[in-house]
């Protein structure tokens, strides 16, 4: 939320009006480190049209995520709950579950990743086209969970980059939904950009 009443005429401290990321003048701009200021200064210049297009593209991307469930264990059952009619992720546009990595842009790693399947996970991630996002669902995918064991990967960020971590063992469907909405916000802010 923007800070209220910043323009106090009695104050002797010069202030700029404070805004939360994604809510001020630079809303929808690419805010990669170091870039945002340059872009803001360039408003009205040649970059204006590009950034506005990005905003539209990001809005579209955030509202139609196509998830690829990399479901290995218990979390996959809660993922199914989230897709099913009771919770219904279709309300947020992420209901087109694709099992081919080539048709998906959001990988939801639901379940424990063990050393034996780690190369498979990496390969499937590499097969996804850009832009791609990853949600680590649950304690196991985040950190190995309570399996501090000889065959369990201690968090999938050992292997692939992760955008959103969802806590829980397993997370509730609404928890996962919250994670997807957070990712949507991040995409719409233009924070995530790879490739």
């Amino acid at each position: 939320m923007p800070v209220q009443n910043v323009d106090n005429p009695n104050s002797i401290i010069p202030r700029k009006s404070a805004t939360a990321p994604g809510e001020g003048a630079e809303k929808g701009l690419i805010t990669l480190p170091g870039e945002s200021e340059r872009e803001v200064e360039g408003i009205g210049g040649a970059t204006y049209l590009t950034t506005k297009l990005d905003q539209v593209v990001n809005w579209a991307r955030g509202n139609s995520l196509w998830p690829l469930p990399f479901g290995t264990a218990c979390c996959a059952i809660e993922f199914m709950s989230m897709v099913s009619s009771h919770y219904d992720i279709a309300r947020f546009g992420a209901e087109v579950v694709r099992f081919s990595p080539r048709q998906a842009d959001l990988m939801i790693v639901a379940g424990t990743i063990v050393d034996k399947i780690a190369p498979v996970l990496k390969k499937i991630y590499e097969q996804m086209p850009e832009p791609k996002y990853v949600i680590a669902m649950g304690a196991c995918a985040t950190s190995g969970g309570f399996y501090r064991a000889y065959h369990v990967v201690q968090g999938i960020d050992e292997i692939i980059p992760v955008d959103i971590w969802v806590p829980g063992c397993p997370p509730t469907p609404d928890g996962l939904m919250y994670g997807i909405l957070k990712l949507k916000e991040k995409i719409e802010r233009g924070e995530i950009r790879r490739g």
Partner: peptide, 11 residues
């Protein structure tokens, strides 16, 4: 098989 061997017995 073994793609979800979470070491239950050792744990």
């Amino acid at each position: 098989i073994g793609y979800l061997h979470r070491c239950f017995e050792k744990m």
